[in-house]
């Protein structure tokens, strides 16, 4: 029997689950190899758990979602978080450093109609997670690799080194040494080092790489005329909720 796969959404832009449908060349093969039994964005038929694999997009921001993720964990043999929202809280984790009541009243005339938590937090803060796919959005290749690995019953091959390695591999001239501030040295690989190949600095979609040395990067930024507060600001982006970046922001 094909593995039973589910896709769930929490607070997010839908871009990471859309990456499944964006695998145009592989999509029909994927739906042949696994049985996607729960995927509300793509199909009306819905089946209750248990599931062999659950892919979770989005962050936890409401009291209901906090309860829902616990049930999903119980229903899934393997739980995979997909994307920056699910792995670090997403851009909406900027609220963790502010007063959410104030936020709500900026956007909505009647904040009392809303029922939200003060923070936007990653899935792993609430339940054990088996595999994490980083990125804003996730890499389609990593997603396909992970689905393939799960069907084959092996671990997916996912990098933890920095974006710099990807720039070297594709032969992109370092933008930092040519004067453009770049977060690449402290950011996890996975996108394929897109930004430097478009003549701009990495802005951190995949979150911290292993052994990220932000203090050393601060020196390199100063050398291109960007003071420490500018680096602290740059880290307050799509993976602002990552503990390594939180700590670095405080230290800067």
């Amino acid at each position: 029997m094909s593995p039973r796969v589910a896709v769930f959404k929490f607070a997010s832009c839908d871009g990471c689950q859309l990456s499944v449908l964006d695998a145009e060349d592989e999509l029909l093969a994927i739906v042949g190899a696994v049985d996607i039994v729960e995927f509300p964005e793509a199909r009306t038929r819905r089946e209750p758990g248990p599931y062999d694999v659950g892919f979770v997009e989005g962050s936890i921001t409401t009291p209901e979602d906090l309860e829902r993720i616990k049930q999903i964990r119980q229903d899934c043999k393997v739980l995979v978080t997909i994307g920056a929202c699910a792995t670090s809280g997403g851009i909406q984790a900027l609220r963790n450093m502010a007063d959410v009541g104030g936020y709500a009243s900026i956007v909505y005339a009647h904040p009392e109609y809303l029922d939200v938590l003060a923070t936007s937090t990653p899935i792993a803060d609430h339940v054990p997670v088996d595999i994490q796919l980083y990125g804003c959005p996730v890499s389609k290749e990593q997603l396909i690799e992970t689905i393939t690995a799960v069907v084959a019953g092996r671990r997916p091959d996912l990098p933890s080194h920095s974006v710099c390695v990807e720039c070297k591999a594709r032969g992109t001239v370092c933008v930092l040494v040519t004067g453009t501030p770049c977060l690449g040295p402290v950011v996890r690989a996975g996108c394929g080092a897109i930004c430097p190949s478009y003549q701009r600095g990495c802005y951190g979609c995949f979150g911290p790489s292993s052994n990220a040395n932000v203090a050393s990067l601060a020196t390199a930024w100063e050398a291109v005329g960007m003071p420490r507060p500018a680096l602290a600001r740059a880290l307050q982006g799509f993976t602002v909720g990552a503990p390594e970046f939180q700590e670095a922001i405080r230290a800067l």
Binding site: F10, A11, S12, C13, D14, G15, C16, Q17, L18, T61, T62, D65, G90, I91, Q92, L94, R95, A98, V100, G102, Y103, A104, I106, V107, Y108, L114, V116, S120, C136, P137, Y203, R233, F238
Partner: peptide, 29 residues
């Protein structure tokens, strides 16, 4: 669930708006 984009855009540099607001929607960034 609301994500409060219009609130956390306050205090961001104008140049950050295209990348931040793209994250409102993965279908039409």
């Amino acid at each position: 669930p609301p994500r409060f984009f219009e609130a956390f855009l306050r205090g961001k540099h104008h140049s950050e708006a295209p990348d931040i607001t793209a994250r409102i929607c993965g279908i039409c960034p």
